[in-house]
Design a protein around this nucleic acid. Structure first.
Length: 481
DNA sequence: TGAAATGTTGGGGCG
DNA sequence: ACGCCCCAACATTTC
């Protein structure tokens, strides 16, 4: 092997230049060759439509940021191992670095890479950084993985290193000859239907967008987070999830930003309500942790007895849910927000998920698949945890009998009806009293609101008390089986 | 980060 | 003054 000091930086879900340990390490060695490889289906869960849209724009931004440093971003297609092999040979690189990912197949591939390339190259390393804590480094007292959030997170916090985020390296050496690159546009990541127009209005993918969003959070939003995070009618949440998923921002950067915000404003200590937001980062960690230790939970319930739940998967019901036509305004508002934004408020995610699983008895995997396809923040670990949590079959899950009432949840968390009226405009003229229960409205109220049920807006697909009882009966049946 | 049924308490209307 | 009922408000239990 010839020592060249050239290093391939394999970008994955770390589409940023700051706090990027592999990039820093590569820049210290010598010439840097940034590469993004579109994984083949055998390498990774194939991306949903919304994720593809995001990825396209995020890569464009990364490309631009690298250009400003005199670098290019080389595009290649999988299989990953082969593509990495080729690029290293073509460029004479003797180094290969990347950020670790933690899904099962990614872990396996990284092991293979280490085996195969360590003999040939001078420097081969996967860096931590996508998570705050490596999943294998944390076990409970009996040596098995945590299955409950609170003790997991307590240990996590104890373990956290106070390391500061790394600045983006300056004066990176670029190679004299650039290898060939595929064209990003040729990958056709953008959808062919005009669906993504709404996404473009709502989101700014890329590192700059991520930092702007973080900056917007650090102020009133963060101070009010504890009280506002459940209000889908307000901008109460951080909206950092897609940036975190694609690594346009690292959890360590967020942690550090929150820490210095607290110090600047003289609000420290564990009592500060702002730490509620940090615990949301904790749930992200917990999700990745669980998926690492229990990879089968992508498709199988963690609690095995749930395999016997008597699902009733009517495709018509699934479709009504997907299209936001269930006749329950809060549910439909959420599903339409999802379609328009590629995103849904977390409180509403819980409501629509509970509705699909418990009111319609559709298997949670079908809901997870729809979220996977339509969310710009679709994340295998978080999606799996979220759906299993709602279904009651996961770790630290909501008990099965905790069935959200889509009517009262709407009235409680969208008290003025702003959220429902925005996404279900055909009901906008109804008074608050009937907004979440239009089928109870007297005929003259419906007429005044210009609503004809079954025509402008659907009748409820199921009766709530009936559906609730049916779900509970199913639970009893499962336990007896 | 539930909802609904059931139980308890206390004020007020009323005969 | 008293008992009775109703019901809101809150607490507890159950799913």
């Amino acid at each position: 092997m010839k020592k060249t000091g050239k290093t391939v930086v394999w970008f994955r879900r770390d589409l940023r230049l700051s706090d990027h340990a592999p990039l820093v390490a590569a820049a210290q060695r010598g010439q840097v060759i940034p590469v993004y490889i579109l994984p083949s289906e055998a390498d990774e869960e194939s991306l949903g439509a919304a994720s593809k849209w995001w990825l396209h724009h995020s890569l464009k931004q990364l490309e631009r940021a690298l250009e400003a440093k005199g670098l290019r971003l080389i595009y290649r297609s999988g299989p990953l191992l082969q593509a990495l092999d080729e690029i290293c040979q073509e460029t004479d690189a003797d180094g290969l670095v990347w950020h670790r990912l933690y899904e099962k197949r990614s872990v396996e591939i990284e092991d293979l890479i280490l085996q195969r390339f360590r003999e040939r190259l001078d420097f081969v390393e996967g860096f931590p950084g996508s998570l705050l804590v490596e999943p294998w480094s944390l076990m409970n007292q009996s040596g098995s993985p945590f299955k409950v959030f609170t003790p997991f997170w307590k240990r996590c916090i104890q373990r956290l290193s106070p390391a500061r985020p790394l600045p983006s390296p300056r004066g990176i050496e670029s190679p004299t000859n650039w290898p060939r690159s595929e064209g990003l546009d040729d990958w056709r990541l953008l959808p062919s239907i005009p669906w993504a127009d709404g996404l473009s209005l709502e989101w700014q993918p890329g590192e700059q967008g991520a930092l702007a969003q973080l900056d917007a959070l650090l102020g009133e939003r963060l101070l009010a987070y504890y009280d506002e995070r459940n209000r889908p009618d307000h901008e109460g949440t951080s909206r950092l999830s897609p940036y975190l998923h694609f690594g346009e921002l690292s959890p360590r950067q967020i942690w550090a930003a929150l820490d210095s915000f607290a110090i600047r404003n003289g609000i420290g200590g564990l009592t500060w309500k702002g730490w509620q937001f940090v615990s949301e980062l904790g749930w992200r960690e917990f999700a990745a942790y669980l998926l690492y230790h229990f990879p089968s939970t992508v498709s199988e319930p963690l609690r095995a007895e749930f395999k016997h739940y008597p699902w009733d998967s009517k495709k018509t019901h699934l479709k009504a849910w997907q299209q936001g036509q269930t006749g329950y305004p809060m549910v439909d508002a959420g599903m339409r927000e999802l379609w328009h934004m590629g995103w849904m408020h977390n409180r509403v995610r819980m409501i629509v998920a509970s509705f699909l699983i418990k009111h319609l008895l559709v298997p949670w995997q079908d809901g997870a698949a729809w979220f996977w396809d339509t969310l710009v923040d679709a994340d295998l670990a978080s999606n799996t945890l979220g759906w299993q949590w709602t279904a009651g079959c996961g770790a630290d899950a909501a008990p099965y009998f905790r069935i959200f009432n889509p009517i009262t949840q709407g009235e409680k968390f969208d008290p003025n009806g702003d959220y429902v009226r925005r996404w279900v405009p055909e009901l906008a003229s109804l008074p608050d009293k009937y907004l979440n229960r239009p089928w109870e409205a007297p005929v003259d109220v419906l007429r005044a609101g210009k609503v004809t049920l079954g025509l402008d807006y659907p009748h409820p697909v199921v009766d709530h008390p009936f559906a609730r009882q049916r779900a509970l009966d199913g639970y009893a049946k499962m336990r007896n089986a």
